[in-house]
Simulated scan of single mutants.
Amino acid sequence: MATGPKVQCTKCTKNAAIIACEGCSAKFCRQCFNGHRQDLSKELDNITYEHDMFKQQLEGPKADGPHRLLKQIDEWKKDSVNKINQLADQCRTDVVKLLDKNKEQLVHRFRKITNSVRKGRDDEDYDERDLIRWMSQLKELKDELIRPSNVRVEEDRQTSPWIQKIRISEGVLEQVKINEGKSWLRPAQLC
């Protein structure tokens, strides 16, 4: 019976290999094989530890607060509200300026009516038509004070939305490469 040369241990290269590992296909002497099994056992312990830690995260209370995606939505809301408040403040300032300007014009028109009424009374030169005209002019001024005809608030539909709308999308994982029985996954492109 002919025997071939002895295969050396892959790890220590001193002793003859007597056992092959099915997982990594390396050939070991008894001592190195025992060490290899201990290394595998330590890796399994690490995996078990990571498994248990992840399980605690899944089942445990939310100690670290809301999820980062919820925080992102809250930040968008805060930024949007700040933008709205800034624009509303600017619009209020503009309206106050326009109302003050409008009021100055109303005061000028009111003085003309006042002078006309006084002159009519002093001269006793008025009749029903004057009374109706003066009352109509006063009513017009009151209406103009309450609802100015030259000032209005309206939405600008010609410009792009000032606050960017957000949306929630769910990514789907797709298989892109199969290599030696292992699947490599990447997120699918979102439209």
Rank of each mutant, 00 (worst) to 15 (best):
D125N: 10
R147Y: 11
V107H: 14
L145Y: 03
R129F: 00
N115R: 08
K78P: 00
S116G: 11
D122I: 04
L138M: 07
H108S: 13
D122N: 13
K77C: 10
D64A: 04
I146Y: 05
D130I: 00
K119C: 03
A88I: 09
R121N: 13
R68Y: 15
R109W: 01
I132N: 01
E140Y: 01
D64E: 09
I84F: 11
I132K: 00
P66Q: 09
D74W: 08
P148L: 05
V81F: 14
G120E: 02
E75C: 13
L138W: 01
R133D: 10
D79S: 10
I132Q: 01
L141I: 06
E140V: 02
Q105Y: 02
I132D: 00
N102K: 05
V95R: 01
E104V: 13
D130F: 00
S80L: 08
L106W: 08
R92A: 07
K119H: 03
D100S: 06
L131G: 01
S116E: 06
R133A: 14
L69A: 13
L87H: 13
L145S: 08
N102W: 00
P66M: 12
A88G: 04
R92P: 02
T114E: 14
R109S: 10
K112T: 08
G65A: 13
I84P: 01
A63F: 07
I146D: 07
R147D: 05
G65W: 05
Q86M: 13
D130A: 01
V95M: 12
Q137V: 04
H108T: 15
E124F: 04
N85C: 03
T93V: 03
N82Y: 10
R118K: 15
L106Q: 09
L98R: 07
V95F: 02
R111V: 06
D123L: 02
Q105V: 09
V81W: 13
W76H: 14
S116V: 02
D89M: 12
E104M: 07
L138D: 03
I73F: 08
N82E: 06
